[in-house]
């Protein structure tokens, strides 16, 4: 292909894959995400629907164009990039301007996935790369939260969503602080039930914890998701939060609040489990979940920002190959030092 020299070989196991199942897995992931998506559109209305559509479209288009540009057969047919787009859309605020959605999608797929070598080679979850880029580029727009269940949400398109490319969005919809921002800046804790059933505000697809959990259980039942990662994250967060709540219940919320607020559910179930960017060994998965859980709690309680799931997962992505290296099982028949 290109005469650029390969300076560095990066390979992640497994090096032998069973090929045909990508389509099948991806179809099931879509099925698992369907209830969350439908609820998101129901709760936030047209804005969320447009943001989700734009997110999927931007990722698919970018992948297609880049494949053509590099002279490779296009890989949009295997659904994986569409899932990336859908997950990316679910992490965005419901009234984000569409042009920003496109910029983020192009960055996530272009830089987060394609530059690393495409499907199966990405070191980071491309959907989160896209979101992290937007968070750094447009911090105001990325922390602007439309109120859920507004009466005219199906008939009225928020003006910010249709902002001209490169123009600053003008907001007309009612807004609300997210439960985590309320906790951080006002020390107000939302009720657990409100969080579980998605009655609070937040990113498009992060509000309804119960539906996300259902999707996850479906995937685990079909043996298509590593249950150890989310289990480890939930356990870590719950235990750490419980300890701090015992110390100072005024400042620190309870475990249920932490589990169902912000992007933790969506992140733990659908993002952290990215098969490419997470460890392979079982112990590795537990360690990886532990790391994410600790980082989430630390960022939320003592960091400058109210939410830290995205950064926690990206950081854990970065160390996941090293986790695998660290706890590599001894190859049968070799000595103590094999590698």
């Amino acid at each position: 292909m290109s005469p650029l020299k390969k300076l560095l070989e990066i390979g992640s196991s497994p090096h032998i894959s069973s090929g045909a199942s990508v389509d099948n897995i991806m179809f099931n992931v879509v099925l698992a995400l369907l209830p969350v998506t439908i609820f998101a559109v129901y709760a936030f209305g047209t804005g969320a629907a447009l943001v989700l559509a734009a997110a999927v479209l931007s990722c698919v288009l970018t992948e297609h164009v880049l494949c053509k540009f590099a002279g490779q057969p296009t890989t949009v047919g295997d659904w994986s990039v569409a899932i990336t787009g859908l997950l990316y859309g679910l992490t965005l605020p419901p009234d984000l301007p569409l042009w920003m959605v496109f910029v983020g999608g192009a960055f996530g797929v272009g830089v987060g996935k394609f530059l690393f070598g495409g499907l199966g080679m990405n070191a980071f979850n491309p959907a989160l790369v896209a979101r992290a880029f937007l968070q750094a580029a447009f911090p105001q727009a990325m922390t602007h939260w439309q109120m859920p269940f507004i009466d005219d949400r199906f008939t009225h398109i928020p003006s910010s969503v249709l902002a001209m490319p490169f123009a600053e969005p003008v907001y007309d919809a009612a807004t609300q602080a997210t439960p985590l921002a309320q906790m951080k800046f006002e020390a107000v804790f939302a009720a657990d039930a409100q969080l579980m059933y998605g009655l609070t505000t937040g990113s498009v697809g992060e509000t309804c914890g119960v539906l996300i959990l259902l999707g996850g259980i479906y995937l685990v039942a079909r043996n298509m998701m590593n249950w150890r990662i989310p289990a480890s994250i939930f356990l870590t967060v719950a235990v750490m939060t419980w300890i701090f709540q015992q110390i100072d219940p005024q400042t620190y919320p309870g475990p249920l609040f932490m589990l169902f607020s912000g992007g933790l559910m969506l992140g733990a179930v659908f993002m952290a489990t990215d098969m490419v960017a997470s460890p392979i060994t079982h112990i590795g998965c537990w360690l990886y979940g532990l790391l994410i859980g600790v980082l989430v709690v630390v960022i939320r309680f003592w960091g400058g920002m109210p939410e830290g799931v995205m950064y926690a997962i990206l950081l854990a992505n970065a160390v996941s190959p090293h986790i695998d290296n660290l706890i590599q099982p001894r190859v049968f028949g070799t000595g103590r030092k094999s590698g």
Binding site: A136, A137, F138, P139, A141, F166, A167, V170
Partner: peptide, 8 residues
């Protein structure tokens, strides 16, 4: 009304 890209 130009949206600045803080990241840059």
């Amino acid at each position: 009304g130009f949206q600045t890209w803080t990241i840059m």
